[in-house]
Simulated assay, not measured.
Amino acid sequence: MAVDLQSVSEATSGAVGALLSTTILYPLDTCKTKYQAEVKAHGQQKYRYLSDVLWEAISTRQIVSLYQGLGTKNLQSFIAQFVYFYGYSYFKRLYLERSGFNSIGTKANLILAAAAGACTAIVTQVRLI
């Protein structure tokens, strides 16, 4: 089986985009998690707003703590998005070749995206026993 270089190219582009967005937004996700996990002792909240978590990290010079676990999250994001975009590109090319159409309609596009999403879920969620 030959490697589909166009699908690999599109998958790599999508995965790099996911890597970039994950890296940029990760501190916000960490702040949200910390805010939601806060234990409310005696009816008082330590954080009133989500931004309080961020300002606390800045004021205590703990900004690096907002990036704990980023490597694992980036790896997961990169793999999942690579698989999704590869699958979508591959299914799209296959559909266009077999149907003889020059473009994809909305219905077919949604079906191909769902198929790519299902493949991504299978590849990234299934654990071997």
Rank of each mutant, 00 (worst) to 15 (best):
M1K: 09
A2T: 08
A2W: 09
V3L: 14
V3H: 03
D4L: 07
D4G: 02
L5G: 01
L5K: 11
L5Q: 07
Q6C: 04
S7G: 05
V8S: 07
V8Q: 08
V8K: 08
S9F: 08
E10Q: 09
A11T: 02
A11Y: 08
S13H: 06
S13I: 11
G14H: 14
G14R: 11
G14N: 10
G14S: 11
A15Q: 03
A15F: 01
V16S: 03
G17V: 11
G17T: 09
L19Q: 08
L19T: 13
L20K: 12
S21G: 09
S21T: 15
S21E: 12
T22V: 00
L25K: 03
L25T: 11
L25W: 05
L25H: 01
Y26D: 06
L28Y: 02
L28Q: 00
D29W: 11
C31R: 03
C31N: 01
K32R: 00
T33S: 13
T33Y: 07
Y35E: 01
Q36R: 15
A37K: 11
V39Y: 10
K40I: 03
A41D: 02
A41T: 11
H42W: 03
H42P: 00
K46Y: 04
K46R: 14
R48G: 14
L50A: 06
S51I: 15
S51V: 14
D52I: 02
V53D: 06
L54H: 06
W55C: 07
A57H: 14
T60R: 06
R61Q: 14
Q62P: 07
I63P: 05
L66M: 10
L66I: 04
Y67W: 06
Q68L: 15
G69D: 06
L70G: 00
G71A: 10
G71R: 12
G71E: 11
T72P: 07
T72V: 14
K73A: 12
N74V: 08
N74T: 00
S77I: 05
F78I: 03
I79R: 07
I79E: 05
Q81G: 01
Q81A: 02
V83T: 12
F85T: 04
Y86D: 01
G87L: 06
Y88W: 09
Y88T: 07
Y90I: 01
Y90S: 03
Y90E: 04
F91D: 03
F91N: 08
F91K: 06
F91M: 08
K92E: 07
K92N: 04
R93N: 15
Y95S: 01
E97C: 00
R98P: 13
R98V: 12
G100K: 08
G100C: 07
N102C: 12
S103G: 04
S103Y: 06
I104G: 08
G105P: 09
T106V: 12
T106W: 13
T106A: 13
A108V: 05
A108Y: 02
I111M: 02
I111V: 14
A113H: 10
A114Y: 03
A114F: 10
A115E: 00
A115Y: 00
A116N: 13
A116G: 13
A116T: 14
G117N: 04
G117T: 07
G117P: 09
C119K: 05
T120M: 12
A121G: 12
V123W: 09
T124E: 02
T124L: 04
Q125N: 12
R127Q: 14
R127T: 15
I129N: 11
